[in-house]
Design a binder for these strands. Sequence first.
RNA 1: GGCCCGUUGGUCAAGGGGUUAAGACGCAUCCCUUUCACGGAUGAAUCACGAGUUCGAUUCUCGUACGGGCUACCA
Length: 515
Amino acid sequence: MNKACYFCGMQTKKVRVRFAPSPTGGLHLGGVRTVLYNYLFARQHQGDFILRIEDTDQTRFVEGAEQYIYDCLNWVGLTPDESPLKGGKFGPYRQSERKPIYKQYADQLVANGQAYIAFDTPEELERMRVDFKTEQNPSPQYDRTVRNKMRNSLTLSPDEVKRLLEQGARHVIRIKMPENETIRFTDMIRGEVEFNSSLVDDKVLLKADGMPTYHLAVVVDDYLMEISHAFRGEEWLPSSPVHVLLWEYLFGLDKMPQWAHLPLILGPQGKLSKRDGAKYGFPVFAMNWTDPKTSELTEGFRERGFLPEAFINMLALLGWNDGTEQELFSKEELVEKFSIERVHSGGARFDFEKAKWFNHEWIKKLPVSSYAAAVKTYLLQKGITITDETRFEKVLELVKDRATLLPDFAEQAVFFFRAPTAWDLDAVKPKWNEAKTQFFQSVIEKFKPADWETVILESNFKEWASAAGLKPGEVLLPFRVMLVGGKFGPHVFDIAALLGREETIKRIQRFLQEV
RNA sequence: GGCCCGUUGGUCAAGGGGUUAAGACGCAUCCCUUUCACGGAUGAAUCACGAGUUCGAUUCUCGUACGGGCUACCA
């Protein structure tokens, strides 16, 4: 498992990182970025990327949420090396299936006096919070100042504790935070971080149902799964002293993974939430997510028409850059250039406009074949079925500069597959006259199958216009409106060339009846 | 309230004692294009504040302010 570091020759632990979501709903932007950074780091160090499902809260079980996580990872192409689905040497990878493992560690802490048993009921805890609440202390914690006033193995006699346990009284195990110790560790992004243990509360480690809380489960599983580096959101920083202490008590600080607390992704006001998305009209989840209970749909980047390449690129740059002016990175380039030390410590506000720019760049950059299938689904929504693959890709090639999001292709490409039924007459009619009608009638006659090529079409058309005493500009826009229906789209003669002679003539004739 | 983290244009950000303080998004103007885009050019716009250290602070230190996170038998 160990190997020598390429750079310094020292024996180093194999890099093993993990993404540990709780399957309670959609996968958030920030979650995907955490996956990304984990993945990039693992690949870069020839390490393993593990997916561990943190489903210790049975009350928050959500049908389909776990599958949704796999689907998202699959879509963005960040697939784990070990997971509940794939398995691995360190399974099971679902914490609910690891339930029997945790108790012994909690018991060990109690035996060593580093944790204690607490019998307080939810009602008692609630009363404590009310009773101890003051203006100075609006949210009292279960800490060293109150634990002596509660019902736990610290205040009850050993006999009483024994009796309660034998009676099967519901109880939890809490860590006993030491008094006035400085707990410090080095964060890969923030450097030295320190906390005074007196200010941290006695967090529950093992719940009354026998399940561990996050605090116990992360350290036990990170140890058992030989995690070398632990990346998570900044919101975990305040509870990190508990985790550090647990590492010290249980496995030794020398075994502790290196921590990196990632900056938060901010919305218009504070931590980005799905509410922000709904409010401001941009997606927050990777893919569409429908809450099975409320049927509430939260939009995803995928369905909004984002390319996974763009999504990942944009996420990578939200909090990291390589110090150069480069902004467009493929996944492979990111693996090569990413460095956790260059991740910012400050939160980054998500900007949907910039996200769209990334997508546009990737649409232009990627071969159209890589997203043709996705575009088809949007066309299908407009009732258009694609049969000629080659022609379809030619169309995409012609309009891709005009598409920022995938659904834009539908707008930009429909007229290649369906003749317009409505025309922007306002753009044409005011300047229309008999001479133009005659001109287009003559054009229909003059169009020869052999001339069906963009450049020939263009030079002929302009020549005929001049001969008819018309400025090319006077008939170019009408020609476009005939073929397209509106004032948009690629070069007119490219359109005509792709449409073919018959269809072009048909559209001219149809329009002539209309104007 | 307490604790923790942070602060370079509207947003993402480079830079890290001496610079005209990069670049990108967005915005504006112009060019290209007899459409819409793409592309090109130009422009407006930034070191939160106050002390200290220093010959010199955007850069280092300390305060203040502001922003954010956490403060559950949730993760």
